[in-house]
Computed example of a mutant assay.
Amino acid sequence: MKHMNYFLGSAFLLFMTGTSYGCNLNAHTKSKTTLVTQSTTEKPSEQYVKIALLLDTSNSMDGLINQAKAQLWDIVNEFTHAKCGTNVRPSLQIALYEYGNDNLSPREGYIRQVLGFSNDLDEISEKLFSLTTNGGEEYCGQVIHTSLKQLDWGKNSDDLKMIFIAGNEPFTQGKLDYKDATTNAKEKDIIVNTIFCGNYEQGISTMWKSGATLTGGEYMAIDHNRQVVHINTPYDDVIIKLNSKLNGTYISYGAIGRQKKELQYAQDANAAELEEVVAVKRAVSKSSRLYKNSTWDLVDAAEDDESLIAELPQKDLPEELRGKSESEIKAYVKQKKAEREEIQKQIQELNAKREVYIAEHQKEETGELENAMLSAIKAQASKKNYTWDKK
């Protein structure tokens, strides 16, 4: 039963795999356009972890999708603490594909890109919740090949690049040989991790383990219909209330501002509908460095470039700021930023206490998954000079 405990939370993210490269230790995270020269080689200023999640959405996979929805925020919260080298905090990008669904085009191999690489956590959540299941043909080799071809994986050898593919039919289905697809992935320094939804030995006999081994990835077997176990804590209600206050610090602007703010609320509701604890984990994610909304929130945008405030036309401002002077708008943004930082600090402090409570009350069986997952993440990520801390 040990392998059954590797359910989608571990699959979804981060069995970081080893390569011969290390993090760019001299990189700076502030500017995405600045290049750092090391000897004669120029390297990007920011490190990325790029994860493509390929989910089987055929009839029997409702449990898999539900686990993915529930585990998203665990993944984000863990990765908040990742460091690349001495001081670089890597950015997380997630892409999403579905395959094996009769509603998809047979011409495309019953495969659809749901989302290209994105760091918009609300958008990622929205796309996960949009998935529905239906019977179909499941072509693992083809969906891997498609993700390699369509996604912008970048050329930085320091980035961590991973595919996680989950399903329950033989890995050999389809015209495109999975060995060719995984060989292509390995050439691009992309690790394929496989999650078989069923018996561990059956996954081996249907080549799911082989699909992972060819790139140095991890093979896992999960009970995709198993109920995700969460532990409630005395701090949950307070964190949820603070999340509501946190939403009040966002200042929408531009053509998509109002829509994005509505999406923020909608994903809060989606998390809460799954379970209260999932809403708590999402709130913790929203208090982290990985929850950035510069494209629609004036606080995050001004932190990147304060000159934006002077350039915005009145029609792109929210109602409460129209007719205000530039100095008044800056003062308002500064006030909301201070409020946000204080709320985020409170959430992080409460979450630290929450984690202690969970560790003290977690039964051995429910703790095995988390401990195994985090141990594998850190051990394998260390091969690219990644470390974890809570600072």
Rank of each mutant, 00 (worst) to 15 (best):
T295Y: 07
A166Q: 07
F12H: 12
L53G: 01
F164D: 03
T215Y: 04
S39L: 11
R226G: 09
A70I: 04
Y139T: 03
Q173R: 09
I94Q: 05
A376I: 04
V278R: 00
I75D: 00
R226V: 10
C197A: 12
K337P: 00
D177C: 08
K383H: 08
N59F: 04
M16C: 13
E276D: 05
R107D: 00
K330A: 12
R322D: 08
S10M: 10
Q227G: 08
R112V: 06
M61R: 07
K363A: 10
Q150V: 14
A266S: 06
A338S: 13
E342T: 06
Q227H: 13
N26S: 03
L246C: 03
P106L: 02
T19N: 10
L263M: 14
N351I: 15
M4Q: 14
Q142H: 08
E342M: 03
K155R: 15
G367V: 04
S294N: 06
K30N: 05
K337H: 00
A372C: 10
G116E: 09
A52Y: 03
N119I: 01
L115N: 09
P170A: 03
K175F: 07
V192E: 01
S60G: 11
K50E: 14
W73H: 09
P170Y: 02
H361Q: 11
K345T: 15
Q150P: 08
Q227T: 14
A372H: 12
I240T: 06
I204H: 04
R258S: 10
N66L: 14
N24R: 07
I204Q: 08
Y357R: 01
D180K: 01
K186D: 00
E126I: 00
E262S: 15
A269D: 13
D300R: 02
E78Q: 15
K324P: 06
E306P: 13
T57W: 00
T194K: 07
N87E: 12
P234W: 11
Y139L: 06
D304F: 11
N184M: 04
I309F: 02
V278K: 00
I239T: 05
K43I: 15
S105V: 05
W73K: 06
S252Y: 15
T172V: 05
Q38H: 14
G141V: 01
Q71D: 10
D62T: 15
P90A: 06
Y200S: 13
S205W: 10
E368Y: 13
V356F: 04
K390W: 07
A181D: 01
Q267S: 08
I347V: 14
C84A: 14
D180H: 02
T17D: 07
R354A: 11
K32G: 12
I75G: 00
E364Q: 14
E339R: 06
G9I: 13
K390G: 04
Y200P: 11
V277N: 02
L317Q: 02
I191V: 05
Y178D: 01
G136E: 00
N168D: 08
E365T: 06
T206G: 00
Y6W: 07
A379K: 12
Q267C: 12
P318W: 03
G9R: 13
E201D: 11
M373L: 14
S45T: 10
G257Q: 05
H361E: 06
N24E: 11
K149I: 14
L176V: 01
A212M: 03
E349H: 09
K83A: 15
N199R: 04
K336Y: 01
D223V: 05
K161L: 13
E78H: 15
G257K: 04
V76C: 09
K260R: 13
Y48G: 06
L54T: 01
T182C: 09
